[in-house]
Amino acid sequence: MQPPDDPLAPPSGVFAEPWQATVLAMATALIRQGHFTQIDWAHALGAKLAEADKMGAPDTEDTYYNAALTALEQLIGQAGIPPADQATRKAAWEDAYRRTPHGAPVVLE
């Protein structure tokens, strides 16, 4: 919880990993499109953070973004993409990465 050295520095390294930015971008976009509300998002995220805290997860960015991702999966599930479809698609991406030679673009079949 330490303040950074230069609070007005350009926002470089804002996200440790690209997927973290995508989670927040998707949540914002889905709220804008009316698939769920700002309040739904705050409550879902708050619940996942509380859950992580209760389970003794470390107070880190990793824990925060994992909670955000789990909240997003839940709300997208309610918006019409059920968990089973999400899991199937994740497996398809895994397969795509496995069969794609290094350096080539990874695409779904």
């Binding site: 995508t22 998707m26 991702l69 999966e73 993409i81 999400q86 698609r89 991406w93």
Partner: peptide, 18 residues
Amino acid sequence: THMPSDPALRVKALESLA
């Protein structure tokens, strides 16, 4: 193949489906 991390794959799944 530089398999992405588990959360990165979950995000790819959500993003592509949405």
